[in-house]
């Protein structure tokens, strides 16, 4: 199922928490919402899941308008809200049975689904405990299990890996990746490596607006524009090397790195790469080229650039 959002707006008082957002998510796509706290990620997710109604704009899920077909569409959405709210007094299995019932799973399929979920999320050793007795990592798994129990076409997860240890994070990411092959997944996070590791596409939201939309590679290209190389050249007079590098056709700017005499940072003209020329120069001059690193703009930098001003 695909999701289409048109001019979505949510006002709280006079403030626009979400401001005319439009985007589409295709079936089988994993989209990451990225943004500082209070940017409107959670509000957007709450509107897509039907928890709150938008002030303006339309949400189409599987081609149907959400407000007109809420009951039907809700059956196809699995949702893991922020902070993973659960009932601490309820035993894990009872809770999953309850959720399965509410989502309209036929009686005879309820227990096979519960067993399946417990297997997938690795809840087996803890399945007879009350939810309140579980550790945070296991609670998060219960949260994932309840979101997926009715095998939804769309999974919406608000910070799915918060509070997990690094091993669990890797597992959950793997799980999300696997699920994303057949399902439409939207997840929000402010952990940048997470979106890179799991998402096909990134939407950066700031102050209720989408400020960037694309794959992480595309965002990098847009943000930097030109390739940057870091090189280390030895066996030569630093100033001669510096001047020679500046003379190359494809370099627009050369600088020393960290004040060290043998390391240079080369910024290329947009659309060209100086790598070959630098290598050839070193061969001609009998200099020793010991390092050449294409320097990628970090997602952190893009994020900071787009969300602070």
């Amino acid at each position: 199922m695909d999701i289409r959002i048109e001019n979505l707006t949510k006002k709280y008082g006079g403030q626009r928490a979400v401001d005319r957002i439009s985007f589409e998510v295709r079936t089988g796509e994993i989209v990451g919402f990225l943004g500082p706290n209070g940017a409107g990620k959670t509000t957007t997710m709450r509107m897509i899941t039907g928890f709150i109604a938008p002030t303006e704009g339309n949400i189409y899920i599987g081609g149907k308008l959400l407000e007109d077909h809420a009951d039907e569409i809700k059956r196809h959405i699995g949702y893991l809200p922020e902070n993973n709210p659960l009932y601490p007094d309820m035993p894990v299995i009872d809770y999953l049975e309850y959720v399965a019932g509410l989502q309209g799973i036929p009686k005879e399929e309820v227990f096979p689904r519960i067993i399946e979920m417990i297997r997938i999320t690795g809840l087996n050793p803890e399945k007879h405990k009350k939810i309140g007795e579980l550790s945070k990592g296991f609670r998060q798994r219960v949260g994932l299990a309840q979101a997926m129990i009715h095998d939804p076409d769309i999974l919406i997860m608000d910070e799915p890996t918060s509070g997990l240890d690094p091993n669990q994070i890797v597992e959950i990411r793997k799980l999300i990746r696997e699920l994303g092959r057949h399902k439409t997944v939207i997840l929000s996070t402010h952990i940048l490596p997470e979106v890179e590791a799991t998402c096909d596409r990134i939407l950066i939201i700031n102050r209720g607006k989408i400020v960037a939309d694309g794959t992480s590679g595309l965002l990098r290209k847009q943000a930097s524009g030109a390739e940057i190389l870091r090189v280390r050249i030895e066996d030569g007079e630093p100033n001669t090397i510096f001047k020679a590098l500046q003379k190359l056709d494809s370099t627009s700017q050369v600088g020393f790195v960290d004040g060290k005499k043998d390391r240079f940072e080369i910024q290329c003209h947009p659309g060209t790469s100086a790598a070959r020329e630098v290598f050839r120069l070193c061969v001609e001059q009998q200099w020793m080229l010991t390092e050449m690193i294409p320097f990628e703009t970090k997602l952190e930098d893009i994020f900071r650039k787009l969300t602070t001003n």
């Binding site: 809200p81 709210p85 309209g104």
Partner: peptide, 11 residues
């Protein structure tokens, strides 16, 4: 506890 959000986003 916020469970109302989960409850009301179900069918």
């Amino acid at each position: 506890s916020g469970t109302i959000e989960l409850l009301l986003t179900r069918a």
